[in-house]
Design a protein around this nucleic acid. Structure first.
Lengths: 192, 192
DNA sequence: GTCTATAGCGCGATAGAC
DNA sequence: GTCTATCGCGCTATAGAC
């Protein structure tokens, strides 16, 4: 068994730091210390910081969306699917030792400081998620298990904004416990 | 008529920059350029960056909460009060030329990079807002115009998280237009 | 109260030995 | 592929003239 390669360790560390502190507060020095490698060595794997963040998004976003697609493709009920979608965000928040936001949620807050190729990846992630939420909500409404007023697309945006945004906000107070409570409440609202 | 003093111009500029870019991306050089003053002169008014941000919060938070309290004390219906509360966030987003997040929403995302006296101000702002939302929600439920399942306190947290978090997220796509849509949807959900 | 000048540090990034 | 060494820049902050 080969141990995790350095490139992956750098990505993992960088991701955790961004989810905790944001891109602008994350530095090569931080990664260097955590991985046990010198700053210069990081540049061998990712020549610029933007390259590193791009690689991070090109790993994170497809991984996340693959999980979502697996949920959608499953034979579960719409309610269970939505619940499992919510659980992906809970898992993000509670993974590791400290509260971590979604990578793209954090980058969204800092969006105006990102160069275009990076910002576009974040924007695309939002759109991809909302499109998948529309699928789940449509299925649930047609099956009669979801009952909420208004447009499905708007509801998808509302749900996604609450999950992405809420995960950032609850870190200031109740953390995972509080997040679970609002997610449960959200489910009640969707069911009507 | 005395023109706005320098101290206030610095505060205004710094606030706008933080709402747009975040604390960690905002610099004395940015303020210097926008105000038309040299970096060193800013230090005369605010000796450290933390002092500046603290002064910002000590102005912003009471100002915002005063607006909220005026809404609560008004003779309007609970629905109108809640709608006017939502409008405070819409106003933040749409003020100025570019989308601006709530000052404390942005600082919440970057919370783990803030020193304690600053972080505590942000946390307190969240608690103060949620307490006021509880008042409005309680009044509306007792009057029979709000009808939502679950705990009022959790609902207050849900609403506040959606407003603070949503304002950060919608900037990546539909901006003010999208924010208005989800806020309107939220109102429908509260009314049941 | 604002200026010039500069200190001191941390950052991302590069060169070149091993 | 990782190292040492260093560059150049932007940052916060300070000293002292005006």
């Amino acid at each position: 068994m080969k141990s995790t390669d350095t490139r992956t360790e750098i990505l993992d560390t960088a991701q955790e730091l961004i989810q905790k502190l944001g891109v602008n507060a994350m530095s090569y020095a931080d990664i260097s210390e955590a991985v046990g490698i010198r700053k210069a060595s990081i540049h061998y794997h990712f020549s610029t910081k933007d390259d590193l963040v791009a690689a991070l998004l090109d790993r994170y976003n497809p991984d996340f969306l693959r999980l979502v697609d697996a949920i959608i493709a499953s034979p579960e009920s719409p309610e269970t699917k939505l619940s499992r979608y919510f659980a992906l965000f809970e898992a993000t928040l509670s993974s590791g030792e400290q509260d971590k936001a979604c990578l793209c949620g954090m980058l969204g807050a800092e969006l105006k400081t990102l160069k275009h190729p990076l910002a576009e990846r974040v924007i695309q992630f939002y759109q991809d998620n909302e499109a998948r939420l529309v699928k789940i909500l449509t299925e649930g409404r047609e099956a009669g298990v979801f009952s909420f007023p208004g447009d499905i697309k708007v509801m998808a945006t509302l749900i996604f904004s609450l999950l992405e945004g809420g995960i950032l906000i609850v870190r200031a107070n109740g953390g995972l416990y509080q997040f679970r409570a609002i997610v449960e409440q959200l489910m009640q609202l969707v069911k009507g």
